[in-house]
Amino acid sequence: MTQPAPPEAASATPETSDATEPSPLAGLVAGAVLVAAGLGLFTRALTVGADRGITLGGPTFAPIVVTGLWVLVAIAYLGTQAARWRRRTTQPNAARPTWRVPIMLLALLIAYAVVLKYTTVGYVLATVAFYVGAAQLLSTRPRREVIVRDAIVGVVLSLTIYLSFTKLLGIALPAGVLPL
């Protein structure tokens, strides 16, 4: 009953961390992107520094240090990934992430923000639509089974948020076409 937790905790789940080992190629690509981005930012910091002058107490010093550090760390990372690439074995692709869902979610999020800001649809309708859409994307079950449930939860959620923000906190959310 009062056993110390470590053994149980250790045995309760498989020993990998959150992410399954990323593929060597992904690491290599990420390393290259990081180095490129770092170099771009570092160049920019240096150019601005050259324009305005670089002094220890000036505003251009920290950006140069930070982006310089970025470049160095990114190169080191690329190095470790290159080493992994050389040591790679033809491992079976056990758990490949699916990129379709997160990308569609992002697109949906952006659409949601744009609708909130630039249209007169209003918070409640936009949120219900977004909620149902996001829940659909995240669902592994057939659509028709869950869409009614999602819609009901979405309506309750968005109405609760809208009313408590506008009436209780005094933070205005776009009312839109609904007569709320």
């Binding site: 979610l105 999020l109 949601y112 923000a113 744009v114 909130l116 800001k117 949120t127 977004f130 909620y131 996001a134 829940a135 659909q136 994307l137 995240l138 669902s139 869950v146 449930r149 999602d150 939860v153 979405g154 959620l157 968005s158 948020i161 923000f165 933070i171 959310l173």
Partner: peptide, 23 residues
């Protein structure tokens, strides 16, 4: 999970947008 994480996205957007009004 779909209901929970869709809700998290709603609250995350709300937390940023309602406060700053800045897209």
């Amino acid at each position: 999970r779909p209901l929970l994480y869709a809700g998290i996205l709603v609250f995350a957007t709300l937390g940023v947008y309602a406060v700053s009004g800045n897209i």
